[in-house]
Every structure is written in C-alpha cells, then in structure tokens.
Design a protein around this nucleic acid. Structure first.
Lengths: 229, 229
DNA sequence: AGGTGATAGATTGGATCCAATATCCTGGCA
DNA sequence: TGCCAGGATATTGGATCCAATCTATCACCT
C-alpha cells in the first residue's frame, strides 16, 4: 500500500509529461512537498516511494539528491532523507530573502511591464477575492507576484524568487488553515498594483517590501506561538 | 588517462574528509567547477569522472544531479551534462542577486558584529593588498564579505549569499586574468568597513550595493566585449 | 556531388544485486 | 533492576548489468 494516497493521485497525473523518470519523480515529489501533500518531517523511504511511483529505487535516489540541493529534504547518511521541517526561524529566513529579492525583481521588471501584464495582475487580485481554498489561493498569490516581476529579464533572479515564493506558500498553508487569509493582504496588493500602473518604482518597491515583511512577521508570530504552546 | 590533471590533484586531497562517496564527489566537482579547474562548457562524462575519482558511475550520477539543482551543470536527456557556461547576461543576473541579498545580510548582521569580527575583516583587506593569485584573491574577498554578514543569524540567507559570491568568483577569475584586479575595489572595501565600525547601517548598505554594482557592471562590460569580439 | 536513410558505436538512463551501516531488540552481567 | 554488549533486521550506499537513445559515419539514391 502506498504511504500517501494524495501522492498516488499526483503520480498518475504527472507521469506522461516528463522525458526521463528521474525528472518525473523529482517534479512530483517537489510538488507534493511544497503543497503539503507530504508533511514536514515525513521520512522519505526509497523503496516505498519507488513502489508508489512504479519505478526502481534509482530514479528516486537521484530525485532525492536534487531535493536535498534545493533544501526541500534533509539527508542523514545511512539513515535516509526526511521532508524539510518548518520552523519560525526558517520562516523568518525565507521572509528576509523575499524582502531582498522581490523589490529588486520588481524594480528591474517595472519599466518593461505592459498594460496586458497589469490587467492580468488585476484579474488575479479579483480571483483571490472569492477564493477559499488555501492551495489555490497560494497559487494565485504567487502568480500575481510573478506577473509583476516577469519582465525583469533575469532568469536566475526570477527562478530564485519563485522558489522562495513557493517555499513561503508551504508555510502560509499552515497559517491559513489556522487563521484564514488576512484581508489586509488584498489591500496591499491593490496599492502595489496602483503604484506599478503609475510607474512609481520607489513607491512600488517600498510597498512590496512592506507587504512581504508584514506577511513574514505575522507568519513568524504565528509559528512562534505554536512552537511555544 | 584522466580528463583533467588539476581535478586529479583535488581528488587526492579531498578523499578522506567525507562521509559518503557521493558527498565527496559532489564537493570536489563543485570546487573544481567554481575554481575554474574544469572550464565552462566541458562535457562531464560519467565513465571518465568515475575513473578519475576511483568510484563507480553511480555516485557520479547523484553528484551531477545535485550540481544541476545548483545551476553549476546543465543536463540534456540522454546526452549528458556539461559545465554551466558563463555569459554576460548570466553575470549580470548574479550581480543583481548579490545586490539584493548582500545589503539585507549586512543590515541584519551589523548590530551583532563584534570588534573581533571587524578586526578580522580589516586583516582580510590587508591580505588582499599583497595578493597576486586570482584564486586566493577571490577567497579572501569572499571571506571579507561573509565576515561582515556572519552575524545575520539567517542560515538560509547566508548560504544563498555565499553561493552567489562563489558563482561571482567564477566570473571574476576570467576578468582578473585579463585585466588584473581593479584597485578601486580595495578603497570600497575600506569605506565599507569604516561605515560598519561606525555602526552606520544606511551608509554601509548603500556602499555594499554600489560596490557589488560596480563589480557587476565592469564584469558585464568585459564579457560583452569578449562576446562581441 | 550532395543529401538522406540506415546502421554501428558510444553514452546515458534504469533495474537488479551486493555490501556497509544504523537501529532495535534481547540477553547477560553488575 | 538497570545498563551495556552483541547480534538480527531493515535501510541506505555503491557496483554491475541491461535497455534506451543519441550521434556519427557510410552507403546509396537522386
């Protein structure tokens, strides 16, 4: 029997889209970890995963190595890998990284943003208004941010930014489940979009910094309370 | 016969320090790529590397996967991996990331810096004055920067910062070989250290941003010239 | 003569097999 | 009764083997 029923469902869907088995396993596992289908701290047994994916242990091993390099799994020699834990300290760490990267991405992207980009961002805000599912909400929020950064013309910076938006999602999911989505965030999104429309780079950067900072602060407070209790 | 004689030398040294073979291969290959022992674009043949390291192909494969996740190697399915190329665009990309991360790291670290840290940084500047070897120079420069950021208390941010300092080194090596070290950099280092001693966070952050920006700009100009010619 | 297709060689991707190491349980001893 | 030692078991790490696919070469056709 499979460890995780949710994982089995992901497996069936993703299978045909990838060139090599390793790539398929890596992408699926990464999604499963980031979306919380596999909980933090879960041991990642190679044999078990291999069976779930219907492959041998080898592509699983290669995939786990890639996840380790991305800090989504931790390896202990001869003891196996576990899904990276979440903690208040690590959440604050990711928040600090986002506060550094996202204003830079926005500043580079802003001059290149088209009216179509801005309309798309506005639409994403509207979609978020009526959304209740935390997973979907995280995706919309991420797409909103990435839409604004898309014209930065720095693939590496954008990949890093998206990676940390995804990592933040993993955390947000916990907060969301306990507290619900904070409505202030939507006001901040609207203000940010307005500054972008106005072409006001300094204001936009300030707003995105504050926005990310707010989110990180609330998250940290929540997680610290949880760790203390 | 080994592909690369320099690599063989690294292998002999690093062997006993690691717990698992994969870890050993990964660390050694990473160092070899970052220090330019293996040139950009070089194909990484698994059999060849396995022989050089005196192991089977398997740990090599796992190591290559990790390098791929760190953007130090590129995989082409069924065609193998090559050492990541360098380009003006990618150099600018790394520069932008550094300009985002390093001021953040410095701002968080500055209140926690001890007199001993600052003395250490000063010593590193002095060492750089008399240094001619580009590899050693890169290391000293990196340690100077990381010393100033060390008290940030954000392991993830620091790891990311160091990773991109290392990536920048790889680029700097080329510039250094062609142009020599630009002396202005040392003045910037001294000014930065003075601001840190004074506890002036805003000035220090501005200086580090400019410093990194200068380096990136010169590097980009150099590489663009090289690509055009 | 140039281009296209088939075939052979090389190289990677994946599976199976064996060895090394960690954990856990049990039994003996203080 | 509690602790340490030793062995059994499970799991990972590493090696070898086989299959899939890409590349290059050569022959053949236009």
């Amino acid at each position: 029997m499979a460890v995780n029923d949710g994982l089995s469902r992901l497996v069936a869907r993703a299978r045909p889209r990838h060139r090599t088995t390793t790539e398929f396993v890596e992408a699926t596992l990464r999604e499963a970890i980031l979306t919380g289908v596999i909980a933090p701290g879960t041991p990642l047994r190679q044999e078990e995963l291999a069976e779930t994916f219907g492959v041998s242990r080898m592509p699983v091993r290669e995939a786990l190595r890639q996840l380790e390099a991305r800090a989504l799994a931790e390896f202990h020699p001869h003891r196996g890998a576990v899904v990276a834990e979440i903690s208040a300290a690590d959440g604050a760490d990711i928040g600090a990284i986002r506060m550094a990267l996202e204003p830079m991405a926005l500043r580079l992207s802003l001059p290149g943003l088209t009216p179509a980009d801005l309309d798309q961002a506005e639409e994403l805000i509207a979609e978020m208004d009526g959304e209740a599912d935390p997973g979907r909400m995280g995706e919309l929020n991420r797409r909103f941010h990435m839409t604004l950064y898309a014209r930065a013309g720095r693939p590496r910076l954008l990949a890093l930014t998206e990676q940390h938006l995804l990592a933040a999602d993993r955390y947000l999911r916990f907060q969301f489940a306990a507290l619900g989505y904070r409505p202030r965030s939507q006001d901040e999104h609207r203000a940010l979009l307005a500054a972008c429309r106005a072409g006001d780079a300094d204001t936009a950067c300030r707003l995105v910094t504050e926005h990310v900072g707010q989110a990180a602060e609330q998250l940290t407070a929540f997680l610290e309370g949880r760790e203390a209790g």
